[in-house]
Each structure stands twice: as C-alpha cells, then as structure tokens.
C-alpha cells in the first residue's frame, strides 16, 4: 500500500507545489537566456555572412564543426569553457532550488509563498550541496567499477574472451541500474530529513537516509526504480522529438522554444513527484 501511496501522494504534492516548480523553471530559464545571447553572437561573428550553415540541413555535419574550430578557435574554447562554467552554474543553481522545492513539497500547500521558497533554498543550500556531492561521488564510483572491471579483466588478457567480457559488461550495467535507486533514495531521504529537521546536521541526515531507505526498502526501492525508468523514457522521448523537429521559419523556431520549455517543466514535475513521493514515504 505504501508503494501506491508514494505515487499518489507524490503527484498530489507536486501539483500543490506547482508554484515552486514554476519558480524553479523561471530561474533556470534566466540563466539559459544569459548564456544563449553571447553564443549566438559568437556564431554570427564566426560565420560572417557565409552560407556554410546550409550544410547543417541534413544533420550535424562534423566537417563544418571542424572548419569552424580551425578558423575561430577562440569560439571553440568559449563553447567548451562556457559549457563547463554553465555546467557548474547549473549544478549550484539546481542544488539551491532543490531546497525550496523540498520545502514546498513538505509544506504541501497551494498557498506556499515564493519568499519561503527562496528562504528555504538559501537555508538548505550548503547541506544539500554536501549530500549531492557525496551521493554523486558514490554513483561515479559505481560507474567506474562498471566500466573499469571489464577493462582490467581484458587488459590482464589470459583466458578471458571478448564474449565473456561483453557478458560481464551487460550484467554490470543491469547491476548499476538496480543499485542506482538506492543512491537516489539516500539522497532524497537525507534532503527530506534536512528540510524537516535541523538543516545543519548533514551527516546525521545521510545516516538517516540509509536507515530510511532500508527500513521501507521494498516500497521505496520500487517506487524509485519506476520513477527512474519513467524519467529515462521521458528524456529519450524528448531527445527524439527535439532532434527530429527542424523548424524552417521564425515561428517554427519560437514553437521549438515553447515546446522545449514545456517539456522541461514536465521534466521538473516528474522530479517533483519523485521528491514528493519520498517526502510522503518519510511521513508514513
């Protein structure tokens, strides 16, 4: 029963936190807009009035990309370093906004105030950062094992065949997927605890994260696994839709923009259902 409750309560909490979700989106969108402008002007400068972009009609022509790189290497380094900066910026931003989102999901009221959202974001920022970094490190470690073990075995040569290595890789991949919910549950329970209790006790919260995960293991685990699969499928769908839609007019371009932002809000909503579900499980 707990298992179903997690979904329904998670969805209801997410719906009640719609204001927080929209605030979340608005903030990420602002950062995006700031980044887009210089990128556009760089590309304009690099291309001049060249018609080389015609080569992009059929897809992403790697040749064009390399020609751009050669003639305008500052732009390439801008894109790569800009990308890194943006990555970090987003990382901190999302972490910041998660605080407000968890608080809103905990409060579970439509009347939740933007002021509270930002106050909680600020209050929880540091603790959430520690939780996020630690859990990501755990996930990375697991991934290194998944990739590294077969490589090491292959490197050692000897009697292991390529076939066996590939089988091992498939097994490890499934293991990784099966273990991933545990890490995410730890992260979510810790953050739920922090939102509800003393926000400074980070390590206590992580301890609680593990405890809560294993206390309600079955319902928590399957809830999270299903959420991961649903979100994964959704992202694949988004990738397919956005990659295959090539607008030919300014209007179409605007539509692409609206569509991508709408899909991103849906993505945020799904994430909120996950956080909300864990919040509900925490309360049960």
């Amino acid at each position: 029963m707990k298992f179903f409750k997690a979904f329904t309560s998670g969805a209801i909490r997410a719906l009640r936190s719609i204001k927080a979700i929209l605030l979340f989106w608005l903030m990420t969108f602002a950062v995006l807009a700031v980044f887009t402008y210089p990128l556009k002007s760089f590309i304009n400068e690099a291309m001049g009035n060249s018609m080389i972009t015609n080569l992009l009609d059929e897809g992403f022509n790697l040749t064009l990309f390399t020609d751009l790189g050669q003639a305008f290497s500052p732009m390439m380094s801008y894109i790569t370093s800009g990308f890194l900066i943006l990555l970090l910026l987003y990382f901190f931003l999302y972490n910041f906004l998660n605080g407000g989102l968890f608080d809103s999901l905990k409060t579970n009221k439509l009347s939740y105030k933007p002021g509270d959202f930002f106050r909680s974001s600020a209050r929880l920022f540091l603790s959430y950062l520690v939780v996020m970094v630690l859990v990501i490190l755990m996930i990375l470690l697991a991934m290194v094992l998944v990739v590294g073990v077969p490589v090491l075995i292959q490197r050692a040569g000897g009697s292991v065949t390529e076939e066996q290595t590939w089988k091992l890789v498939s097994v490890l991949r499934i293991v990784a997927l099966l273990v991933l919910p545990v890490f995410l549950l730890v992260a979510d329970y810790s953050r739920t605890w922090l939102a509800a209790n003393d926000y400074r006790k980070v390590f206590k919260s992580i301890g609680y994260g593990f405890k809560a995960t294993f206390k309600t293991f079955l319902s928590s685990y399957f809830f999270m696994l299903i959420m991961i699969i649903v979100q994964g499928l959704f992202v694949m769908l988004v990738a397919k839709v956005l990659a295959s839609y090539t607008p030919e007019s300014g209007g179409g371009l605007f539509l692409l923009f609206l569509l991508s932002q709408f899909l991103f809000i849906v993505k945020l909503f799904l994430r909120a259902v996950r956080y909300g579900g864990v919040t509900a499980l925490y309360r049960l």
């Binding site: 990420t28 995006l32 980044f35 887009t36 990128l39 556009k40 590309i43 304009n44 291309m47 972009t53 015609n54 992009l56 009609d57 992403f60 990308f83 943006l86 990555l87 987003y90 990382f91 999302y94 972490n95 996020m132 859990v135 990501i136 996930i139 890490f183 995410l184 992260a187 992202v235 988004v238 956005l242 990659a243 090539t246 607008p247 030919e248 007019s249 300014g250 179409g252 371009l253 692409l256 923009f257 991508s260 991103f264 993505k267 945020l268 994430r271």
Partner: peptide
Amino acid sequence: VRRKRPVRKLVTFIQFFTHIISI
C-alpha cells in the same frame, strides 16, 4: 532560422543534461 536552430538545440540540451546529472 538556420543559424539559430542549432544554438537553440544546444542550449536546450544543456538545460536537460545538467538537470539529469544534478540528482
């Protein structure tokens, strides 16, 4: 349009990608 299209797609990709990795 041709010029803006890849830029739009790139920034959308960044928006989604960073959200996925920041658990």
